[in-house]
Amino acid sequence: MLKMFIESLKNLVSEPETIKYPFEPSPEPKGYRGTIHYNEELCIFCDKCENICPPGAIKFVVVDYETGKKEYNYNPYLCIYCGACVRECPKADEGCLVQVETRTPPLGRSVPKGKELGYFINRIDNPKEVESKWREIEELNIKTKEEYKAYKKAKRAQKAAAKAKGEE
């Protein structure tokens, strides 16, 4: 009791330790696990990041069955920033998928934009739409994958048939 008495007196005359956060910036921690950045040019579309992602915040949507072109959709507001996708990415060393040290801004009146965030967030302007639009993406992800699979199968069958025909 007496010790705390003296400690309190000492504290009264010494500087407080509070960081005046909203008025002064909070010190950015080094090595912070922040937003996931993506580079489409390096991507080999192996889908490994999509498969590991625990909350399912990365979804690929096949846009063109002919070429098999996929679009990378990333929802930073579903992401848990665990970095599992980056560890799984075979091209991570070259910078295909990188976890940067800056935080994603909280979802306020505007949505963050940038090529490195993938297609999903760049196509949305209203923050209220993030959730509903993401549900559409999830449905699209399952649908296009199945259709692509069926398309490929059909194509393979066609090829085999053509081959069989050619052999005849």
Binding site: Y32, R33, C82, R87
Partner: peptide, 23 residues
């Protein structure tokens, strides 16, 4: 602070992974 510096986050560390540690 030490944990944040080592693992990269303050509460959810996600440090131990199958076959090693995250960083």
């Amino acid at each position: 602070d030490v944990l944040e510096r080592i693992t990269g986050n303050r509460v959810q560390y996600d440090y131990q992974t199958i076959g090693g540690v995250a960083r």
